[in-house]
Design a binder for these strands. Structure first.
Length: 116
DNA sequence: TCGATGACTGATG
DNA sequence: CCATCAGCCATCG
């Protein structure tokens, strides 16, 4: 159909929406999957701009070191940690064990789930 | 156009 | 494992 190109930001939202409950991914990885390599920082911006109505699982996105990106003192940090724990993800000092929780998307799933 | 900024990263010590 | 640092890149004033 004559669908104009999805904005880079929309692509990021689509990918984030696919992260399964109980799993996490990183800014850089989301950028890659969205076809925007090297734009990890843009992913953080896209999440900040995302409309609440989208109900994105933003809390499942952490940095490449497996840590929550917000400072430990911020309300955001607390909220993200609680949301992660609420889906059985262990978080210690803002850190998540990637070897145990990192999302491993398979190509087939992505190809059929993403509109681009 | 320039410099600062940030929910980032990978390399390095 | 932690801290630092240069590189990164869209956005903003």
């Amino acid at each position: 159909m004559n669908q104009t190109q999805l904005s880079p930001m929309a692509k990021i939202w689509h990918v984030v929406a696919l992260i399964p409950e109980g799993h996490v991914s990183s800014y850089g990885k989301i950028a890659d999957l969205a076809g925007l390599p090297g734009r990890a920082r843009y992913v953080s911006r896209a999440l900040k701009m995302a409309p609440d109505a989208l109900q994105l699982p933003w809390h499942r996105v952490i940095n490449s070191q497996g840590k929550i990106a917000f400072p430990e003192t911020s309300p955001h940090f607390i909220e993200q940690m609680q949301k992660l724990r609420s889906e059985a993800i262990e978080v210690n000092r803002g850190r998540v064990k990637l070897s145990k929780y990192e999302w491993q998307p398979d190509l087939a799933t992505l190809v059929f789930a993403l509109p681009f």
